[in-house]
């Protein structure tokens, strides 16, 4: 489908993967809201390679320090490591047998590398980091996406 088209940009890939607009989905926010959403059949029929989710962070550290203590570079690093190896626990595929193993390895990696109070959930969406990024990454959006995956993973463990 659309996702197999290599020309699609990253934002579209994420929106497709999350089954809707990233902004609306994440602002709707809470755990319950996320859990109630149904998985898209199209996604399960056509497995996506998660390399499309790679965040183009070059770890320059210009965005840091975050005034609210989020380790932005570290979080993106964890995310990219998982995405490059196709090991992100996609909440949409929670029914699949691989999900539990992916969840465990992703959470262990994330929790071991990033201190508790520097994880993506502590982003308050103040957008102070965005103008500093030479790669023009929408940092809060990606942090929320990461938190969404993490919260879904923790819900099931």
């Amino acid at each position: 489908m659309v996702l197999q088209d290599e020309k699609m940009n990253r934002r579209e890939a994420i929106e497709r993967l999350l089954g809707g607009s990233v902004a609306t989905l994440l602002i709707a926010g809470g755990l319950t809201a996320c859990r109630q959403r149904k998985s898209s059949d199209a996604l399960q029929a056509n497995p996506v390679t998660q390399a499309a989710l790679h965040i183009p962070c070059i770890a320059c550290g210009d965005c840091m320090p975050c005034p609210y203590g989020v380790d932005i570079v570290g979080c993106f690093d964890v995310w990219n490591d998982a995405a490059d190896n196709n090991e992100l626990p996609d909440p949409k595929k929670a029914a699949s047998p691989h999900y539990a193993a992916l969840t465990r390895s992703f959470l262990a990696d994330y929790h071991n590398r990033i201190p508790l109070l520097a994880r993506a959930g502590h982003c308050i969406n103040c957008h102070r980091c965005e103008p500093l990024c030479p790669q023009h990454i929408q940092i809060p959006v990606f942090l929320r996406q990461m938190e969404w995956v993490e919260q879904n993973a923790e819900n099931r463990t």
Binding site: I27, G29, G30, L31, A33, H122, I124, C126
Partner: peptide, 16 residues
């Protein structure tokens, strides 16, 4: 205190 917008509590409340 910081004069920023923040929605951390709203976003994370599991019960809305």
């Amino acid at each position: 205190t910081d004069d920023v917008d923040c929605d951390a509590c709203v976003r994370h409340c599991p019960h809305q």
